[in-house]
Write a protein that binds this DNA or RNA. Structure first.
Length: 584
RNA sequence: GUCCUGGUAGCUCAGGGGAUAGAGCGCCUGCCUGCGGAGCAGGAGGUCGCAGGUUCAAAUCCUGCCCAGGACGCCA
């Protein structure tokens, strides 16, 4: 925890002197992570409390103000709407006057906030002392790989369930988006101190798998020249033919009369192996594969039905068992056990979610395609009805993906033989591009994946733009001249160019960015931020010579700033899961 | 027909109560005898789908409508 007391913060200001080694002379006091925003927020809160005395009935803690980086440079480094929000609660009409009062009540330690201005309709604009930012450069370098680390997790556990495709065929491009969203979120949780279990839920029983086995058997028999009827709704993909060929290579004609189960399980093994390989190519490893069957075996499924019945939330009609979801506020009741006696997919899903909660995880993350929205609500409604809170279940719904090549939409049809698999995509554009591009858009937005752009080794490609910045930094730091600058005493006060300041202020936002990406479950904030850092660095690089700086003092400080930028880029790229190359 | 997501620059998309709405690409103009020009600086380009409403303040929240995609099955 950051020290809250003013004494701790004053100690920080005193720590602005630097030793030649580039480490703080005193103890590191205010942690680099989001410290300034927190400092300002606390100061505002305390200032609001001073208003309570003159305004009976005013609750300073009820003011839900925000502290945000303003869009315009001349509005300072941070801004707050606190006075305007408070004026509403106080029914004060002179909002600027209130803002003035609030500003006058603000107290900041030396070397943190230099000045506060009242502007516009009643904003408070905070101008951070240059020394604080200069200090930050040193803190970033000192923190290195842990700069931006969050502490929210504090040993809690998270179960991230994603991909979860049944082993009936290769992963599709759509699964790719699912996989990347899930894995990036898992990385964020880990980075915040959570213990994360990546789980893949699957079902290897049921009709789909039966049809799969029949499809393989038909191909196998056909290859032997025997009469074989291909199932009407069979899987037509080329991979089925490959699996059949593998069986023929292994057994010859020996399994021609074998049970369907042999074909089914051979297909499952082969397909799962492919899925695993595809995921590993993308840097994703699951900690566990959860078989739906186990929910039948251990009685969890029956228990859900019994519990629903006990609460009159399940009833029989037309030979089927229904979940009374209308009693939970949903639009319609749904079938959980078909008249054939087979459960619909919802029922095991309910049992699964219930069990995930009971396995003791503090948080659950589910990543689902847009077509699962309704289902998901039914499942969660049932879980709640059975007495488990779903407050800690975070469902990430993502919209579909389209591929584009040469300006044309690439048709994708899962049932047909001819479709672009996730593996094809990785093959074509590389794992890094797949990860970056899938992480790049808001999950809620349709994602158009431009294959040509993803392959380009040019600045059109946002990933290359970011990676190039990192490579440029690495290259610069590796120069002999950089080593010669190292012994020069570090004086970060030499950083005063506008481009330098803009770069540091951007670097300062890493913790804030990570925190929001995690809290909102929005990985695209990472790529957006990475591009901003790269832009700020390139601008700095262009205007502020480092190795050829006017003097060694400036050069040394810029070298440190360059190092800090490299650290931020590397840390953010690691969250996205793509390489931070030394050279390209 | 009901429900869910989107609709922001020519294109792909950020922003999602706050000040003069942003980025990349594309287009136009400049910048290499200097650390990677895979870069930088500048310019043109917008009724934030439409119409109402709430608010001191709406691209953002609410309602209706229009488009696009998805879901509405005893498929998963």
């Amino acid at each position: 925890m950051e020290p809250r007391d003013a004494a701790g913060l004053r100690g920080c200001a005193a720590g602005l002197r630097w030793s030649p080694a580039g480490r703080p002379a005193g103890r590191q006091c205010v942690a680099a992570n989001g410290a300034m925003k927190k400092l300002i927020s606390q100061a505002i809160r305390e200032a609001l409390h001073t208003l309570e005395a003159g305004h009976p009935g005013f609750d300073a803690d009820a003011v839900d103000f925000q502290v945000t980086p303003p869009t315009r440079r001349d509005h300072g480094d941070w801004a707050t709407n606190a006075a305007m929000i408070a004026s509403g609660l106080l029914e004060v009409r002179d909002r600027r006057g209130l803002a003035e009062m609030l500003a006058a009540a603000l107290r900041f330690p030396e070397g943190t906030v230099e000045r506060v201005e009242v502007a516009g309709p009643g904003f408070l604009n905070f101008f951070v002392d240059d020394r604080w930012y200069q200090h930050l450069v040193g803190r970033i370098v000192a923190a290195d790989q842990s700069y931006g680390r969050l502490t929210a997790g504090d040993g809690q556990s998270v179960l991230a369930e994603f991909v979860s495709a049944n082993p009936t065929g290769p992963l599709t491009v759509g699964h790719g988006r699912n996989a990347i969203l899930g894995d990036v979120l898992a990385r964020l949780y880990e980075w915040a101190g959570y213990t994360v279990t990546r789980e893949y839920y699957f079902n290897n029983a049921g009709r789909q798998m039966r049809v799969l086995g029949e499809s393989v058997r038909a191909r196998y028999l056909a290859q032997l020249g025997r009469p074989a009827e291909f199932p009407e709704d069979g899987y037509q993909g080329e991979y089925i033919v490959d699996i059949a060929a593998a069986l023929r290579a292994e057994h010859g004609e020996g399994v021609a009369d074998a049970s369907l189960d042999l074909f089914r399980s051979a297909a499952e093994r082969a397909i799962f192996q492919d899925i695993r390989v595809t995921c590993e190519r993308l840097g994703i490893r699951f900690d566990s594969f959860f078989n739906e069957q186990s929910l039948y075996d251990d009685g969890s499924i029956d228990a859900v039905v019994a519990a629903l019945r006990a609460q009159d939330l399940a009833y029989d009609q037309d030979g089927a068992v229904w979940f009374r979801s209308t009693a939970c506020g949903l639009d319609r009741d749904v079938v959980i056990i078909k008249s054939s006696g087979e459960p619909t997919y919802r029922l095991p899903d309910m049992a699964y979610h219930r069990q995930k909660l009971r396995r003791g995880f503090n948080h659950l993350v589910d990543v689902f395609g847009a077509d699962h929205i309704d289902t998901c609500q039914e499942v969660l409604a049932a879980v709640r009805a059975l007495g488990d809170s779903t407050d800690r279940v975070h469902v990430v719904i993502y919209q579909f993906v389209t591929l584009q090549r040469g300006g044309q939409v690439v048709k994708m049809s899962t049932r047909k033989a001819n479709f672009e698999t996730l593996d094809d995509l990785v093959e074509e554009v590389g794992a890094d591009a797949v990860r970056y591009f899938f992480a790049m858009r808001s999950p809620r937005s349709h994602l158009e994946f431009d294959l040509d752009l993803a392959k380009k080794r040019a600045n059109d490609n946002p990933m290359y733009y970011v990676q190039y910045a990192h490579a440029r930094i690495s290259s610069l730091l590796a120069k002999p001249e950089a080593a010669e600058l190292q012994p020069t005493p570090l004086d970060l006060a030499a950083l005063e160019h506008e481009a330098e300041r803009h770069l540091v202020t951007t670097l300062a936002l890493l913790p804030e960015t990570l925190q929001r990406a995690l809290a909102e479950h929005e990985p695209h904030r990472l790529t957006t931020y990475a591009a901003e850092v790269a832009t700020a660095f390139h601008a700095f690089y262009d205007r502020c010579p480092v190795l050829a700086a006017p003097d060694r003092r400036i050069g040394r400080a810029r070298l440190e700033l360059t190092r800090a930028a490299g650290i931020v880029l590397r840390n953010i790229l690691r969250m996205i899961g793509v390489a931070a190359p030394e050279s390209m």
